[in-house]
Structures are given as C-alpha cells and as structure tokens.
C-alpha cells in the first residue's frame, strides 16, 4: 500500500519535472520570485535589527537562522504541496473534482500531491548548505543529534502548514467559490514567518496551540538554535496529529457536500 503510493508520487514527480523542463522560463522565473522573497524578508529584518539588538530570545544571528529555516519550510512546502492545495477551488467551481474522486486512489493524496514544483530543489540545496554554515558559525560545531531532531520537527512543521492550507482551501465546499483562499492562507501563515518571541501573553499561548503558527517554523528553528525542548516538541507532535485528523475529517465532510454542480 505505502509502496504503491510512493511509486505513484514518483510518477507525479517525473511528470512534473518533464512539464517544468518544457517551460524553462517559468522554472527560472520561480527561482527569481524566491530570490526576491528571501531578499525582501532579509532586508526587513536588517532594518528591524538596526534599531534593536535582541528580539526576546532571538538575536540577529538567531533571526537569520530562523529566516533560513522559514525559507526552507516554504521551499519544501512548495515542492510537495504548493502547486496543489488551491487548485481545489477551481476544481469545485468547474466540477472537475469528479475526475479526482473517481480515480482508484485516495482523493486527498491525489489532490494534495499531484503536481511537484521541481524548481524548489535548487532553492532547497542552496538553503540547506547555507543553514549548515550558519549553524557552524553560531555554535562553532555541529550538534548532529539536534540536526536529526530538527528534521523531525521540521517535517511536523510542514505537515501543520499543509493542514492549515488544506483546511482553508476546503472552505470552498461550504462557500461554493472561495477564490480568496490563497490570500487568506498567506495572511494566516504570516504569523509563522516571524520569530515566536515577538508574541506576548495570551496570543503567545494561542500560536503554540490552537492557532499553531509558531509550530511551523519557530519550534524547528529553536531546536537548532537553543537545542531540543521536549515540551515544545511533544506539543508539536500532538498538534500535528490533531490537525492531520481535522484535515481528514474536513475533507470527508466537504466531499459529502460536493454537488458537482458545473460538471
């Protein structure tokens, strides 16, 4: 069963890579967008740090590591899910979801992973080596155990990111047309693009629980910068499980509401 889905994803990847190679300008264009995004975020934080030395627990060096982890999260998310989640709106509006539902494969799997953004591999490789260099500069050595725990926490962060995007895109089943889903999602996940130390009081508790934005990037980044925190990691694990179950439930409920109106 698992092997079958791995083979299926490999086929998706090969197909997407062929498509991306057909349109090389898009491939280069997407890399260009990433570069601008990374550059503008770096510029933003460099201005902030011209007025302050430390933001809560994070000094400038730690924020740069946080930024690289954030870029990596974004890159890996885009690689697997970026081209898929918000196609659901068009599919529901046009009734094209029928073609997904009748396939002999898990429809959520198919819809979430059908297209792979292969250009993200280039960004990923560059960012990963940059992260290793920054970590070495920060600690003066590598903590391999932290790196392994980081990878686990990072994966959970990506899954939470996916769940939030997917849940928002599923709102189309209730609203019939929810074309602003992508915008809403980017506004929601904006909270994950800032170090958690800027959030105070009750809101801080919220971003670590019911609205788990700090779980997406901050917890993995904290693992690398300050070392693993068992409490945070176990909370992240719990939140991931809850959100995955919630995503599944919302998908099943949404598909029941789907009327295939335009097909």
């Amino acid at each position: 069963m698992v092997l079958r889905y791995i083979n299926l994803w490999t086929a998706f990847f090969k197909n997407s890579l062929t498509r991306d190679m057909e349109f090389k300008m898009n491939f280069i264009g997407d890399l260009f967008i990433d570069t601008i995004f990374y550059g503008s975020m770096y510029f933003f934080w460099s201005i902030i740090f011209s007025y302050v030395d430390v933001l809560g627990d994070f000094n400038q060096q730690a924020v740069i590591i946080f930024l690289i982890v954030m870029y990596l999260t974004d890159t890996v998310f885009v690689f697997f899910f970026g081209s898929n989640t918000f196609t659901l709106n068009t599919m529901v509006v046009k009734g094209e979801l029928d073609f997904v539902l009748i396939k002999p494969v898990n429809s959520q799997f198919f819809l979430s992973l059908r297209y792979v953004s292969s250009y993200a591999i280039v960004s990923f490789v560059i960012l990963f080596f940059l992260l290793l260099k920054l970590l070495y500069d920060y600690h003066g050595q590598f903590y391999f155990m932290d790196l392994i725990i980081f990878i686990i926490s990072f994966t959970m962060g990506i899954l939470i990111f996916y769940c939030i995007e997917f849940i928002i895109s599923c709102l189309v089943f209730w609203y019939r047309n929810f074309s602003v889903g992508g915008w809403l999602s980017s506004e929601m996940t904006k909270y994950s693009r800032r170090p958690d130390s800027i959030y105070k009081g009750k809101f801080r508790r919220i971003v670590f629980s019911v609205f788990p934005m700090a779980m997406i990037t901050s917890v993995p980044a904290r693992t690398l910068i300050f070392g693993p925190d068992i409490y945070l990691l176990s909370t992240q694990f719990l939140v991931t499980i809850v959100f995955l179950c919630l995503t599944r439930l919302i998908w099943i409920r949404g598909v029941k509401l789907y009327e295939s109106a335009s097909s």
Binding site: I48, Y175, S179, V180, W183, I198, Y199, K200, F203
Partner: peptide, 25 residues
C-alpha cells in the same frame, strides 16, 4: 463580499504583527 472580509483580516493581521514587533523594540 468575502474578498473585503479577507482584505480587512489582511490589514489587521499585518498591523498586529508590526505592533508586536515595534512594541517589543
């Protein structure tokens, strides 16, 4: 009309984050 609601959310969430950062500074 949902677009306007998302627009307002976008403004408020952007402002809230900036508020948090600058109050800390």
């Amino acid at each position: 009309r949902a677009n306007a609601l998302v627009g307002v959310i976008a403004i408020m969430s952007g402002l809230f984050i900036e508020y948090q950062i600058w109050s800390l500074i």
